[in-house]
Simulated assay, not measured.
Amino acid sequence: MFTLENTLLTLSIHPTGAELQKISAVKNNLEFMWNGNPDVWSGHAPNLFPIVGELKEGRFLYDHTAYNLPRHGFARHSDAFEISDKSSNHLTFTLLYSEETLAVYPFKFEFSVKYELIVNRIKITYSVKNRDDKTIYFSVGGHPAFKCPLYPDENYDDYNLRFEHPETSQTHLLNLKTGLFTSKTETVFNSPETIHLTAHLFDKDALVFKDLKSRKITLESKKHGAILDFNFEDFPFLGIWAKPNANFVCIEPWQGLADSENSSQILKEKEGIVALEKDKTYNASYTIQIHESHLV
């Protein structure tokens, strides 16, 4: 486990998947992230690459050849990340293509995850470098899970997600058996700016938004006020998810989406896919800012 620490926060990052597993308050020991209980969901904050979500029939097509990838790609379970840069306030983990990755994803890449601790804010930056002699195609995203409730005098339904702008966006519904998008949508906002967390909010799987006006969400408690701000300016899509009846909520910034039921499976045609030319680099960041009232 690797750590970053200042006077307010401690971050713990596991080298497998370069996964952020803890955000802890230094002074009062509050833990802001889900503990990864394997009986419920073993993840903490998986990094999603080179796809986001499920592929139709578990495969994509590139140059008339089929390749199989698991949901959310291979990076989140990879033991091949190495520390490529570090200082007192940041750590960068890098995954380089290999014969193993080329067998399932036919592109030469360099995928990096950088964690920066800046006072009470954590900045996570994804970088993808094209190391191939052709255009490469990929998606990338985050999947951090935040503890709800945070305090012992609260319940899950004491929490809301508050959006910075009034929203009219609807969630795009998934087929629960296949994980693919159907053509159906549904309204989930309790008011133009809020989604109320309940035990059954995620009975139909993740809430997925493609056209939000907001690029900041606040996780707030009715009893203890705003807990954290989540900024995702570099990402066009957002997922919100938890296991039903679980004590966490995932706020997931995505550049990419699961396939739809009528997908062609052709990677170049995949919704949200990034086409990165030879020698180019893609960067996208999101931030988590813990309100200081919870750090004293």
Rank of each mutant, 00 (worst) to 15 (best):
M1D: 08
T3S: 13
L4R: 01
E5M: 00
N6S: 06
N6D: 12
L8G: 00
L11R: 03
L11E: 00
H14Y: 12
A18N: 02
K22R: 14
I23T: 04
V26I: 15
E31Q: 15
F32N: 01
M33K: 01
M33L: 15
M33Q: 07
G36H: 09
P38E: 12
D39G: 12
W41N: 13
G43M: 05
G43T: 06
G43W: 03
P46C: 05
F49G: 00
P50E: 03
G53H: 01
F60K: 02
L61V: 14
L61R: 08
Y62R: 03
D63A: 13
T65G: 04
A66E: 14
A66D: 09
Y67E: 04
L69K: 03
G73W: 00
F74Y: 10
F74K: 07
H77C: 09
A80S: 13
F81P: 00
E82K: 15
E82W: 08
S84D: 08
S87Q: 06
L96C: 10
S98L: 07
L102N: 09
V104L: 13
Y105L: 07
S112G: 06
V113R: 01
V113E: 00
Y115P: 02
V119T: 14
N120V: 01
Y126L: 08
V128N: 04
K129E: 12
N130I: 07
N130A: 09
I136T: 02
G142Y: 03
H143F: 06
P144T: 08
F146T: 03
C148W: 02
P149Y: 05
P152E: 15
D153Q: 10
E154G: 08
N155P: 05
D157P: 10
N160E: 14
R162K: 15
F163T: 01
F163D: 01
H165S: 13
E167T: 09
T171F: 06
H172T: 08
L174D: 02
N175G: 08
K177T: 13
T182V: 10
E186C: 11
E186F: 11
T187A: 15
S191H: 09
P192L: 10
T194F: 04
I195A: 02
H196C: 07
T198Y: 05
L201M: 06
K204T: 11
K204Q: 13
D205K: 06
A206T: 11
V208N: 03
V208D: 00
K210V: 10
D211N: 15
K213P: 01
K213Q: 15
S214K: 05
S214Q: 05
K216M: 13
K216V: 11
S221H: 05
S221C: 08
G225A: 10
G225R: 10
I227W: 00
D229V: 04
D229R: 09
E233D: 14
A246Q: 11
A246E: 11
C250Y: 01
I251F: 01
W254C: 09
Q255G: 07
L257S: 00
L257T: 02
E261I: 15
E261F: 10
S263P: 12
S264L: 12
S264K: 12
E269R: 10
E269A: 12
E271L: 14
I273Q: 05
V274N: 07
L276G: 03
K278I: 14
T281F: 09
Y282P: 00
S285D: 07
S285G: 11
Y286H: 07
I288D: 02
I290M: 06
H291R: 12
H291C: 08
E292L: 07
E292T: 14
S293H: 11
H294Q: 05
